[in-house]
Design a protein around this nucleic acid. Structure first.
Length: 224
DNA sequence: AATATAATCAACCGCAGCTAC
DNA sequence: AGTAGCTGCGGTTGATTATAT
């Protein structure tokens, strides 16, 4: 309790990153790999807090990131997943490996939200806005129902992607493969119950479900 | 050309979960 | 079992850029 926020420390630089800082961070990560962010500022001499370093890496410097120009397929997938999972951007981003959660969140807030509002109430009510159940047993039953619902919906999404395939075979295949992994995870989780995994190895799909449960526990009228 | 307004996106902040002790 | 520290997530802000007047 009472731990001061890391970014309140004196001498910690804020604001936009310079190319030099980027270079230092990239070099460090290339040598040591991502992780142990706490050590990054001291080891590199960067006057940034660990959070800032991690964010810069994951949202900007990480290799394989695609920026801007969301395709129709990506847009549809985001809308679909947002309706299923609510505003769990990290979970949604796990279905779009080339996009960051921040990017998806920004795109949703600046484009899609408005687009859907303009198009009437066509979008399904986000999962996170559904009314909460009152007991733990009910949560678990609802969770199972949600898992089944998500599986069904994702199958539908896969069908949609199959229709799109002729135009974008590689992207669609990648997304489908990712879907399959998640579905397999869902099955494993169902079989293993509450078995823990290390933070790094934890499937984001599961993180999404956990967040969903957390919201339900947190407030009876959980909204986003 | 100058100014106002809107749109975009990088980055910050606070909170919660997880692990180690 | 309790606590501290680290990490990741989601909401929000603010600077910058684009567009309209």
């Amino acid at each position: 309790m009472g731990r001061p926020p890391c970014c309140d420390k004196e001498g910690v630089k804020k604001g936009p990153w310079t190319p030099e800082e980027d270079l230092v961070l990239v070099s460090y990560v290339q040598e040591h790999g991502p992780g142990n962010w706490r050590a990054v500022p001291t080891r590199t001499g960067l006057m940034r807090c660990s959070k800032s370093c991690r964010l810069r890496w994951t949202n900007y410097l990480r290799p394989g990131i695609k920026r801007g120009n969301f395709t129709d397929q990506e847009e549809k997938l985001i809308v679909h997943l947002q309706a299923l999972l609510g505003n769990r951007w990290a979970a949604i981003a796990s279905y779009l490996p080339e996009r960051t959660d921040n990017d998806i969140k920004n795109y949703w807030n600046t484009h899609l939200k408005r687009k859907l509002q303009a198009g009437g109430d066509a979008a399904a009510k986000p999962a996170a806005q559904r009314p909460a159940s009152s007991s733990k047993g009910q949560w678990e039953r609802r969770l199972q129902t949600d898992i089944n619902m998500a599986r069904r919906a994702l199958r539908e999404a896969l069908t949609t992607l199959d229709d799109i395939k002729p135009q974008q075979p590689d992207a669609a295949d990648g997304v489908r493969a990712h879907h399959r992994e998640h579905l397999a995870d869902a099955r494993r989780v169902g079989q293993q119950g509450s078995q823990r995994r290390g933070r790094g190895g934890q499937p984001l799909w599961l993180v999404g479900v956990r967040g969903f449960l957390r919201q339900r526990r947190g407030s009876p009228c959980a909204g986003v």
